[in-house]
Design a protein around this nucleic acid. Structure first.
Lengths: 347, 347
DNA sequence: CTTACATAGTATACCGGTACACTAAAACGA
DNA sequence: TCGTTTTAGTGTACCGGTATACTATGTAAG
């Protein structure tokens, strides 16, 4: 019924040249074709509505110009709505598109990653992969090390690694945040952590403790509450902190803005004024941080840039053959708004 | 240096069978291989760490098991952070993964779509495409009609079409929202539109006018303000509406929650109480609608389900060869929270 | 006039799978 | 016992490009 898609051989036959010549035209190898021939071939391509098969090209060249992005999530359908993943993806997509690469998305559901899926990532569909915020115990990525497929990790590995990775300096960022609170006279500072299986949360916890130690303050374990990167965690943990008998904090460092939003809501429900009674600081500077009540002081991550840079680092490996092992750390930036005030009570 | 990746012929040689037999094992064609042979081949596959090439398979079968998703955006890097796109993608990703399809992402920047990009979408990299919320004047999709590549559109076409599409019943949804306001005694209801190049915004405008006409109210053009789907639009338009000399509305229907969030902030800044002085209703029920101040009454779209269903509709075409032209319309649901109250002033 | 080199191509094999048509042996039925 | 069907394979060509190496012609240099 429908006509078969024309191939390079059809174009060649109609133009009266060899398929190789058509191939040369398609790939702009001007030293191989004269202007006249080139023009004729182009015209035939147009007439036949020929468009080359990326698959055939990929098989022959062993490169498809396609990169894969692997996200880890607990709820597959909500994946990208988390602002962090969305922005990372935006940066990746922009960089990839501008470099002529298409972008294929994968999700690893749960943080129990599975080395059997390595086959999926090595079947040639992607020339290289970007792993976004893998778990601290990255079984899957370990398995990738035994393959020839280049990859880049967004997120800082906890131990030794020969990966190429792009990280945010989580420890320094958390220190900055907590030092900001300390500078406002706070002594009892709580830490609401994110997912304990992620290095970001663990490292921010380290930064929190380093800041306290650095200021000569002792660390009260009852002020550290782990959780997940979402508003529910923030709400529940804030309620826990503020309704208990003793040892209530005067400031709360939240591992993400989402956690902070939940905490703000809890404090509002408890009729506790932010920042007069309790200061709150977030992490991410996501949409909504500027318009929350009160506007949230937070650590801004250069998320889009990190995504962009990950692509550059990956293509270095894929295209130029640069070996893995390069890494970059980016700083976060303190964005001061209205959710932190000088501590009202005496130390 | 590194060993060459083994091919199906390597596996065949080592197992002492033909490549076809290995192929049959890989594709679980149990009627073609005995249990013993199968076991042996499997073992060799393991030993050699063989993993089949999706590209070669794709070339031969003319199907890669990969679907493409095309998003339209103005700012490529922020693309997916818009909750709508994120959730749609989540639904698509979940459905695609469960059907063994990989998902490749494309963005059309700006709404000036370009039929030259059709080649990209027809190069075999994707077996089929999902266009998400294309512009009302869909040049690109028109060009797709002349190709053999199956596609599904998320969004309702304005005129005649032979597409397969999945839409939200925007007119009915907008009517429901506006009728909810009318039922609360509101007479001067403003409409803050989204992007005028998108059918969703245009259709919601129709629903708004139908609701007013249906209630026997006349339509005041000065109460309709177009814009973009973002908070800035909501803020600016709300300021415009509420600071002018006359003809201020008592209720505002916003084309998206983001617009509503901006409007809420503007009203707060202007010291206008919501809902006592002005009612506000949104559209989407995105994250944050439940926790805004006041919690936002809004129309909930089944976004994730729509994404999911788009994949099903597409695979019907790709795998079963069902012809295009099927379409589905999904309803939105009114979610009542605290941003709408009975109108205080007399009609 | 001959050699050398650039220009504009072409022929062939190959990338790594699979569809299709074929076959040998075993099992089964009458 | 013979013919038919089932089981368990195999051989070949092909999917649609490209790398590689080769050739024919023109032309500049010696």
């Amino acid at each position: 019924m429908t006509v078969k898609k024309p191939t390079i051989r059809d174009v060649a036959r109609v133009s009266g040249v060899s398929p190789m010549t058509v191939s040369h035209v398609l790939n702009n190898r001007s030293e191989k074709v004269g202007a006249v021939t080139r023009e004729r071939v182009m015209q035939v391509i147009d007439e036949l509505h020929y468009s080359p098969s990326a698959i055939a090209r990929g098989l022959s060249r062993r490169r498809l110009d396609s990169i894969g992005v692997v996200f880890y999530t607990q709820t597959p359908s909500r994946l990208v709505s988390a602002s962090y993943h969305g922005d990372i993806l935006g940066g990746i997509l922009e960089a990839a598109t501008s470099r002529g690469q298409s972008t294929t998305l994968f999700t690893e559901v749960g943080f129990t990653d599975n080395h059997t899926r390595v086959n999926v990532y090595c079947d040639g569909r992607c020339d290289g992969l970007i792993f976004v915020a893998p778990p601290a115990e990255p079984v899957l990525i370990r398995a990738m090390e035994h393959t020839q497929v280049p990859f880049v990790v967004i997120g800082e590995p906890l131990g030794e690694s020969h990966w190429s990775y792009i990280g945010l300096d989580n420890i320094a960022a958390a220190k900055t945040a907590v030092e900001h609170l300390i500078a406002h006279g706070h002594q009892r500072i709580a830490f609401l952590g994110g997912n304990d299986k992620l290095s970001s949360s663990l490292l921010r916890g380290c930064g929190y403790r380093e800041a306290l130690s650095g200021a000569g303050m002792k660390i009260d374990p009852s002020l550290t509450l782990p959780g997940l990167y979402n508003a529910e965690t923030g709400y529940q943990r804030a309620v826990t902190l503020m309704t208990r008998e003793s040892n209530r904090p005067t400031a709360i460092f939240c591992c993400s803005d989402d956690i902070a939003f939940g905490a703000l809501k809890a404090l509002r429900d408890l009729n506790i004024n932010v920042p007069d009674e309790v200061s709150v600081i977030g992490f991410d500077d996501r949409d909504g941080a500027a318009t929350s009540i009160p506007p949230l002081t937070t650590m801004r991550q250069p998320v889009i840039q990190i995504g962009y840079q990950a692509v550059e680092l990956l293509l270095e490996q894929v295209i130029e053959g640069v070996p893995a092992g390069r890494s970059e750390m980016w700083p976060a930036e303190l964005v001061v708004r209205d959710s932190v005030a000088t501590c009202a009570v005496d130390g």
